[in-house]
Design a protein around this nucleic acid. Sequence first.
DNA 1: TATAAGATTTACT
DNA 2: GTAAATCTTATAT
Length: 195
Amino acid sequence: MTTGAPGREFFLRDDVVSVARDLLGMELITCIGGVRTSGIITETEAYAGVHDRASHAWGGRRTARNEAMYAQGGTAYIYLCYGIHHLFNVVTNVAGTPHAVLVRSIRPVQGIEAMRTRRRQLTTPLRTDGPGRTAEALGLRTTLNGTDLFGGPITIGPRLILLKPVDIIAGPRIGVHYAGEDALLPYRFRIEPDL
DNA sequence: TATAAGATTTACT
DNA sequence: GTAAATCTTATAT
């Protein structure tokens, strides 16, 4: 687990919650239009498929938008939220089981100037916290929805920082108050910004 | 066919 | 603190 990038088997794992936790500290890399940008994943949320009211796939929902959730683990699920923001998820579990992990925040590593341009923050401090800001900084758009994370423009790289269990903060997910009891599940994981 | 709400961010009062 | 931007889906006429 400490050497190299995660292989396909990492994303095929059965427990989406543990995948969300283990993604913390890994590098999310994009190479789009010849521009390479990346960041350390610092916040994630798990969406546990058909039994999770907060998930787009709750109750077995399957639409043109969420089709990528039904692909095999290691696929990108990118959708438009509120008509404006692109949100990036990593699909987990085997094909046909629509689990996914939302990447909510990164710490910039490579291509910081390119991310500034994308975020239109050339002089103001570059912010990459929040799922919409994260996707915009990395150039992730719905045109990349369904992209495989092996051999394509989006890659999950090696773990860049080692984390102790005590460093990882679990809590309820954000913006899912409509999900009833499922809104209280501790499916959100993050680390302190200065860790 | 119409309306409401959503895994959000930004700007303005 | 409130509202606007604006696409997709679900539910109600």
